[in-house]
Design a protein around this nucleic acid. Structure first.
Lengths: 223, 223
DNA sequence: GTGTAATTTGACCAAATGGTCAAGATGCAA
DNA sequence: TTGCATCTTGACCATTTGGTCAAATTACAC
């Protein structure tokens, strides 16, 4: 679990949480994700998070020492799952299949956890006050490593010349766009990723465009 | 100028503004863009906007009747310039050149007005409370019109089959990403679009990938 | 210069909100 | 049942903040 440099322990008996604690912390984190992703850090209120979690504000503050502590915990909770797909990019695989799989995972994420995407986007747009060290550390290392993988594919003549980092950015941009701007997309098309047809159509469009863009052909998909 | 359905007039003598009015409203809108784009609507404070505009909070509220009024005015002020590039897509032009020009304009925007991009992103991510009618109205019509243009190119065999709306989304996503996530990009690469080399590199990457993606070749660029 | 309208501000208010605290309720091991 | 630790809450507080208002200052037409 990536550390966000927490200070207070927030955990009476360190290590094992009681059933009540486990349940309540989980309820709080769910409610917090919903609230923070919709309103941003400033716009969110502890009172509303507590209400959505089904408890009093005082009780929530018994579990998390401050609004910022809830926010940090929510971010940490998400970050892992959010960055996981990139880690699966396999140097031993075929570029077309690997990239297609990565794109699909990212779209899947946008469809399944749009709130996580929005929370992350919000945090970064505010200047990444909490996660900047992670971006500059773990994430930077991860991107370097996977860029190397892509560069090797290029050097092996398996795909067209392209800046690997820029390619990763473009995959992030296109896939996350559908979560972060889902309201706009719904306003313009009447649909969003929760519609299976639109999901499929989006996956095909992005995958085709990006793979063609780097001189590859989309692999046959066996759902 | 796109209307945001303003209620109060905010303009004593309708039509012509005094020199003082013009100057102060402009100062306020600049400060507001800076503040709102960095902190979002909730996180922004009228006091800080006033300070950045070099006047008292009371005086600012003499020009705009409420925080929301400033916000709406700021959005309206941006929206026009923000959506302008798409309007220039010329049905009579060559697809490769037209799309390349559009992409370049969008990146230029992201480089020149990253704050505008972030303000817009913020507004949409919060559910577009102010601009939803515009998205569903003017913007939707504009996108339909330009999708038609792209579809005609496809039908004429000038470019590969692709959903025109999805193509537009992908251009938005990739170009705006560099403004909205500039902190992340700086954390990962050490650079952003304000660096001419990185700008050029980004423009080339995006243009090449998208044009290749739709079966076109990037036109020679004559800067 | 005079007078009126426009501009500017500090003092002030009410609501919202993050957080504290002491007291009470509940869970649970013995 | 008893006793203690955990859990829960309402009352309360300090600060922030959007907005009002009357008074003061300034711009400008005559």
């Amino acid at each position: 679990m990536m550390s966000l440099g927490g200070q207070a322990s927030d955990t009476p008996k360190n290590g094992g949480l009681s059933r009540i604690q486990e349940r309540n912390r989980s309820l709080i984190l769910d409610a917090a994700l919903s609230e923070f992703s919709r309103k941003g850090f400033s716009g969110a209120t502890v009172e509303r998070i507590a209400a959505e979690a089904g408890m009093s504000k005082s009780n929530l503050l018994y579990y998390f020492s401050s609004k910022e502590a809830i926010y940090k915990a929510t971010l940490a909770h998400i970050l892992e799952v959010w960055l996981a797909p990139l880690k699966t990019l396999d140097p031993g695989g075929e570029p077309a299949r690997e990239l297609a799989a990565y794109i699909r995972q990212k779209i899947e994420m946008s469809a399944t956890f749009p709130e996580a995407s929005r929370l992350f986007a919000n945090e970064v747009m505010q200047g990444a006050p909490q996660i900047l060290p992670i971006l500059e550390g773990d994430l930077r290392r991860l991107v370097s490593e996977k860029s190397r993988v892509i560069q090797d594919w290029i050097d092996a003549g398996k795909m067209r010349q392209v800046d690997p980092v820029q390619l990763i950015f473009m995959i992030w941009a296109t896939t996350q766009h559908y979560a972060d701007f889902s309201i706009q997309i719904r306003a313009l098309t009447g649909k969003d990723l929760s519609d299976p047809v639109f999901f499929k159509e989006t996956e095909t469009s992005i995958t085709t465009l990006i793979l063609n863009g780097v001189g590859l052909t989309a692999p046959g998909n066996d759902d």
